[in-house]
Design a binder for these strands. Structure first.
Lengths: 318, 318
DNA sequence: TCAAGATGAGAAAAGCTTTTCTCAAATATT
DNA sequence: AATATTTGAGAAAAGCTTTTCTCATCTTGA
């Protein structure tokens, strides 16, 4: 039996008797034959391997993205190199070079905010690059969450529960995400209360509540927070002041960071950016590009969704 | 110029004039020649690629391990496939098969607790396997943190600060880690107070404080917690009762989960399991095995260290 | 000057698949 | 029965390196 005949049998190509084909397959299965992906790749210029580059050390954003990528690509036999490159350009170059040496079919760049570039030059690479949750090069494909729509979801949810004096406690104004979310807040909630910019820390959540409750006049009945950590702190701070959540004040977070949102008392209703879906899309896109299919460049915005827990009241089953 | 001469020039092998060698190298650098790792691997049976298998979806434990692996191996030109296999044996098999197809040089199995196996059969694989922070097969190399020593560190630190009525609020007794830490606690703190087993949740931290402070008699002046989440909740609960931390009670956590430990008010003094070092060791070991070097099987225990913040008092600069 | 040794560079094989091409045998057609 | 067509299976090349072998040239010593 020649090698070429066996190859054709296993790949269902070439002409040969059905009996021969079956016999080859059976024996291949028996001896546990597995084609050498390297030899295959050498020939086809496909390694069924992609690289995921990120500067998100905690994996807060990258892990869900990664999960989505893997989920989408595992069926295609694609494996993922994960490279965490702090914010070190040298390290970034080392990792990109390693990926190129290994002939990845494509690279996905990911990060922890959508208005910052990774500290590596990904232009003029011999493989396609797509960006997910990080700023992409011009004319590239970039995926990100729809901050405006997500924030709108949160504010509308509060309003739907009858909350009309809504505050917005959020992160630094330097973040595009923060400005987008604030824009949605302003458009929907009017400007009864000024947006409260601060840091992404629990400390800021506490301080914001202190500020809100120290000023005279009507207190908010709803607080839309820029992320779950702030929301958590806000909830804690309210409890310390004996303000009841959700009876007196409804609180919405952002990120659906399980580990924070679910542990808060009461658990947070929060906006989920669907990072996993984002990863799926990014994975499928880089695969398409690797296969030579044309993909229109541009920024693709994916919708957020609201995850209802108990920090707003209302029926969680709605 | 023949291909073989070029190859020899670049690899510093073979016999040839220094001028020729230099000329080849210069031109190679000029045209940006990079040898095809696939062809190389096909020949040498080394792909400079390893697989990291984990069931730790949040990356709580795996990401530090991964960082250590990468740090140790990037200099050797090794890249890492990360595969998160929930707890799904089928998915696990798919990923392991994908790794084998791609001829990884070795596999590192990691997890979220040291007394559970990954839901995949890693025996009789054609590549070396080492285990890090998950239960390994008999006669394999397994790395884990020294829970006893880490716990001792915590208790001794409290005692060194003059705390002698120390409570231990921890996770479920079913965890080996929990039992080891409790054993250290008992040996060092005596059994003035019974170990308080519970869940790994903040809720349990609150409840434990409630229990401790509702019983009559002397209250603890030190609390050693089984992880940072519990510690955080304990600190919060104490504050709610107007017990001052660290003035009245010192609290120590376990894990040094930055995101929790640093955000707690006051920030937690806590035990760090050195997972990154663990990853480094695991990476170097799997590399050694891949290169055919002999490595003695067995369980390697790496020491923990105490990270001093403010939840115990004392001088953080000690 | 001739033989022996040293030196530099190229040819070929190996590593594993896939694909294209070729060829012999078997079947179909006239 | 002889030619044309189809069919099955093997040979060879390509993909990129590395390594071993061979060979021609140059140097050295006698």
């Amino acid at each position: 039996m020649s090698i070429s005949t066996a190859s054709k049998a296993l790949n269902n190509t070439g002409r040969m008797g059905d009996d021969t084909r079956e016999r080859v397959k059976r024996i291949a299965a028996e001896i546990g034959f597995r084609p050498n992906a390297l030899a295959k790749g050498l020939l086809s210029n496909r390694t069924f391997t992609i690289g995921l580059l990120t500067n998100d050390t905690y994996g807060r954003f990258t892990l869900p993205v990664m999960a989505g990528i893997t989920e989408a690509l595992v069926d295609h036999g694609v494996s993922v190199f994960l490279c965490t490159i702090e914010d070190d350009p040298a390290l970034g170059k080392v990792h990109v070079d390693a990926m190129l040496d290994k002939h990845v079919d494509g690279i996905i760049a990911s990060g922890k905010r959508i208005d910052r570039r990774l500290p590596v030059d990904l232009s003029n690479l011999p493989v396609p690059v797509v960006y997910a949750f990080t700023e992409g090069a011009p004319d590239s494909v970039t995926f990100c969450a729809d901050d405006f729509q997500g924030a709108a979801l949160a504010v509308e949810w509060l309003q739907g529960l009858g909350r009309h004096r809504i505050a917005h406690v959020t992160g630094p104004e330097s973040f595009v995400s923060v400005r987008e979310r604030a824009r949605a807040y302003r458009e929907l909630a009017g400007d009864a209360l000024p947006v409260m910019y601060g840091t992404w820390s629990e400390a800021w959540g506490h301080e914001a509540v202190a500020q809100l409750w120290s000023t005279a006049g009507a207190k908010p009945d709803g607080i839309f927070c820029g992320n779950d950590q702030i929301a958590r702190a806000v909830v804690d701070a309210l409890r310390e002041r004996s303000v009841r959540v959700p009876e007196d004040v409804s609180v919405v977070g952002f990120d659906n960071w399980e580990i924070v949102a679910a542990q808060t008392r009461p658990p947070l209703t929060t906006v989920d950016m669907n990072l996993k879906a984002l990863g799926r899309e990014a994975g499928l896109t880089v695969l398409a590009l690797a296969e030579g299919r044309a993909v229109e460049p541009g920024i693709r915005t994916l919708p957020c969704e609201l995850v209802v827990r108990q920090s707003c009241g209302g029926d969680p089953d709605l």
